[in-house]
Design a protein around this nucleic acid. Sequence first.
RNA 1: GCGCUUGUAGUCCAGCCUGGUAGGAUGUAGGCUUCCCAAGCCUGAGACCCGGGUUCAAAUCCCGGCGGGCGCACCA
Length: 496
Amino acid sequence: MAKLYERVLDIAVQRGFLLPSAEIYGSMAGIYDYGPIGAPIKRKIQNLFREIFITCPGFLEIESSTIVPKEALVASGHAASFSDPLVECKKTKKQYRADHLLQEATGKSWEGKSVEELQKRLKEHKITSPDGGELGEIKAFNLMFGASMGATNEKNAYLRPETAQGIFLDFKRIFLQNGSKLPLAIGQVGRSYRNEISPRQGLVRMREFSQMELEYFFNPKKDEMPGFEKIQKKEVRVRLPGEKNAIEVSLEDAIKNKYFANQIMATLIYWQHQLYLRVGIPAKKFHFAILPKDGLPHYSQANVDLEMITSYGVIEGSGTAYRTDFDLKNHAKHSNTDLSVKLPEEEEKIIPHVIEPSLGVDRLFYCLLESAYKEKSPEKEWEWFDFPPAVAPYLAGVFPLMKKDGLDKLAGEIVQTLREGGVECYYSQSGSIGKRYARADEIGVPYCITIDYDSKEKKDVTIRYRNDGGQERISISSLADKIIEDAKKGKVSLKC
RNA sequence: GCGCUUGUAGUCCAGCCUGGUAGGAUGUAGGCUUCCCAAGCCUGAGACCCGGGUUCAAAUCCCGGCGGGCGCACCA
């Protein structure tokens, strides 16, 4: 019995959700193209993020460059922490991290030390591999894609390993151009790149992937969130360090118990909870894991990971990090630029603190595929997707019962009417009507419109609902409004 | 990156062991059929992952590469 993820990924490629990138040249591991069906779904997920995280008054969206100068990533700590010193056991050919082996032997952390130093210490402590073999030379493996800008072979730039850094680099000008006050929230949706040693698990570990991030800059002395009282009783599922199961807890209690650093962090987590629900991930399939202090990334003071439960096991769908002033402080130092700000309420200039939710688009997309996937059943003898209308690739398919006698022409007019009425739809006249319904189910289209001989006389059509196969007769003039109205009912309530 | 395994039309699969015209199903395009949950008939287009080797001859045997799956390692 094949694993669910295997089947889902197969179907995703077969039905045009995903395409293997550069397939005619043999494909590339860890890189996928989004096909004609997948691309609109991804776009809709990203737009839901925008709707929830960026369209609030005072929230801004930017699009920064994907190439980042080397110095910026040295300052952010990525140049050091994204480079793994790997060493091979000559006997078993297994790879180990030199700094981890040293840490085991000496009890102290060797992270970020130079290859030369680690090599010296390995010899000094006469360290052998855990398999008992002799160790080879250390090779630095950089998780970032290097780039050479200009007429040089030197790697003087990198493809960004996260979208966040662009926001920090642009912060000063945006702050000054937008009222010079805090809080200030800047979001970004875009591609990031990590040169994974061995990409696996389809969309879970990719070399090129998309992120949705928001940097919420605030005065650390004023960490309230406007409007928090409206949502403080809302509950999210939280998993505590060392615990296996998640528990339901209200946002205000989560702050009291120090699971979340403050109201800002609690709000940004609640918005993620809403985004996942609106994309169609069932509440039981995800929760927020509180990271223990010693498990934090190099930039973070507090971290909450969104964990998704999938057939791969638990995978990380997002991270919410309290980055403090780490990034701005380091960029200020390395670039020799003053990134502190003068606020009306403060005597001295301060460096803003930042809380950042960082969401993986591709992982969320995958999780959606897996949770919407439906096996064959007595009701439907084919595999289909139960996408909420908000993220379905099309809202409707338009089919003439026969492709002659003017039915095709009338169907073409209805497609036009629907598009003008704001309904994304597609047209198909191939095969029997039942076959076209099945095809629509297979890519998760929620509504099918069929034009028959009566349609010409009575100016009405059949609308067919994906999930129960039910049909009703409806006038052409009210069709677009009816579909839009129905699609809205699939929505979870709005925030803000 | 290491080990095992795998690669044939858009998709699923046969052929490979034992070298000799690549076959089926499904999809797709066109035609016929007043077709509402993958109906039927006719016609057409469509494939041996890439490179090298052995051989008169390679989808088939051998080597290498690339991709997929599993295990190990790695996973900011």
